[in-house]
Design a protein around this nucleic acid. Structure first.
Length: 106
DNA sequence: CTGCTGACTGGTA
DNA sequence: GTACCAGCCAGCA
């Protein structure tokens, strides 16, 4: 199920790092399912999945069920510099699947 | 099966 | 920079 796969991907996002819905969708199997991913995230209230580490493209926070400030706080707490509704150095903060990166992703 | 929804994305104005 | 539009996808009624 796409949903389970998405949750797995999000779960693999290391703290202090963020991934876009598109990246998650791509890792899940469909790079175009970014929208569906967001839809799934909406239903993901489990703390097993750091949905707050999932952001929109361009480094924008995206949304968080209305508690966007909470998402911002969590990200900042993990070391992510958030400015307004965007992430500072997003390109360097962006996490991309570490399926085969046993070198340690920076 | 058809239609609607939405934490998306990229493009255009 | 912001605002609007069209495309694309999974989930649900």
């Amino acid at each position: 199920m796409f949903r389970s796969r998405v949750l797995s991907v999000v779960r693999r996002i290391p703290a202090g790092r963020v991934a876009t819905y598109g990246d998650v969708a791509a890792t899940a199997g469909n790079a175009r399912a970014s929208r569906a991913v967001g839809n799934i995230m909406r239903d993901c209230r489990s703390h097993d999945v750091p949905c707050h580490r999932v952001v929109a493209a361009g480094g924008r926070l995206g949304g968080y069920g209305g508690n966007l400030e909470l998402k911002r706080g969590l990200l900042r707490a993990e070391g992510v510099v958030v400015i307004g509704n965007a992430i500072r150095d997003f390109k360097t903060r962006r996490w991309v699947r570490a399926t085969r990166t046993r070198h340690g992703d920076v």
